[in-house]
Design a protein around this nucleic acid. Structure first.
Lengths: 207, 207
DNA sequence: CACGGTATCGGACACTTGTCGGAAAACCTA
DNA sequence: TAGGTTTTCCGACAAGTGTCCGATACCGTG
């Protein structure tokens, strides 16, 4: 599941540069808004030339997308566990993990997902969460692994957007509640969607 | 409700320039991605100098936010009608209006809300929808007009995010279903959230 | 209509962006 | 360790950004 080391092969220099750039961006985004971070800033902080930046990424948004991948993996890692049977007595645990992971990098997520953030990152997160929910629900309901594409799964898109909406709202208000409270507040809304999700696994043809 | 003409006062030149700039941006965004639209492009299309642009807006995102306000009003105008009693026999009508309004400006919304779009616009839309739902639900449940601030209304943020998630997913796939079909698919998910929304109007204190 | 106020405009500025080519350095492999 | 390969770096470039200034044209009010 570790995306950074999925391919330990490749040139040592490449990994060093990319890791330095991603780390530098994460640092800078915790300090100021993403919109105020220039390519020169990231390159200097990473100890790398500006040219090298463009050798690896098209622009700051692409770097941001790559840089937050590891944290997104951590963020959505718990979501597919929703349907799993091994935690029927503590149903909000995956949600608590979700909000806890969010709070662990609150500054970063607030910068990236907020009004000064990157539409590219937002879209990336939404897609990842949509796929995770799509697969998680399918596995829970049918035991099927099915395809990776979300093939217009409306309930999955609905739930993913809802989670991002709650998260963005919470982050921008300065996290006024604990992750556990947020999980308790969100859980009933989520279960309602999940119950209905099963009804449209095979969506009807055009009416 | 018409935000553009809320204050018909003011210099004639200001209204002319702002209207020209907003119209020009809408045109350009229907043609190419927002990221490919420069300030010089907008100014030239609007028949206005580049300096004048900066006299009114800080950057392209701020203009985009202002430019789509009218369409957003149209988009969310139907949402508060959810709780209204005058349409119990055709419950999906507001949702159909929502998706129809979305489809009417599909190119624009796809550009603004997609990965090449503007985080600022996304945040703006989410906020507006959140407030609309907050007020609509409160009015429907208690007849109360209550305050304009959303005071951390988790169900409202949940529902707003969900709607945006479904909309973004639908738009990016090229609107493969009709607005009526989308409304039919989304409606059951939405009602489930709404039923639970009433339970957390007065959220419990810190546990 | 005339006037003070204000918006528009053109030009200039330092800065950032994204791209390119070639030289130097580091890497992997044998 | 020697080889060719790949990455990194440097410098330069056109284009875009955001800001400032003063001159000009326009507006609303009296």
């Amino acid at each position: 599941m570790a995306s950074t080391k999925d391919i330990p092969a490749g040139d040592r220099r490449v990994r060093r540069s990319q890791a330095a750039l991603q780390g530098a961006l994460i640092q800078l985004v915790e300090e100021r808004e993403l919109a105020q971070v220039s390519v020169a800033d990231v390159a200097e902080r990473a100890g790398v030339s500006r040219s090298t930046f463009y050798d690896h990424y098209r622009d700051v948004h692409e770097l941001a997308e790559a840089a937050c991948t590891t944290m997104i993996d951590d963020l959505i890692g718990s979501l597919p566990a929703f349907g799993s049977p091994d935690q029927a007595q503590d149903p909000t645990r995956p949600l608590r993990a979700f909000f806890t992971s969010l709070a662990a990098h609150a500054g970063l997520y607030r910068s990236l997902l907020g009004p000064q953030g990157s539409a590219r990152v937002i879209d990336h997160v939404r897609r990842r969460i949509t796929v995770a929910i799509h697969l998680g629900v399918r596995r829970a309901l049918t035991g099927d692994t099915c395809s990776t594409d979300t093939s217009h799964d409306v309930p999955a898109a609905f739930t993913a957007g809802a989670l991002i909406g709650v998260a963005a709202d919470w982050l921008q208000r300065g996290c006024p509640r604990t992750p556990a409270e947020m999980a308790a507040l969100t859980w009933p809304l989520l279960t309602a969607s999940y119950l209905n999700a099963g009804m449209s696994c095979s969506p009807p043809p055009t009416s």
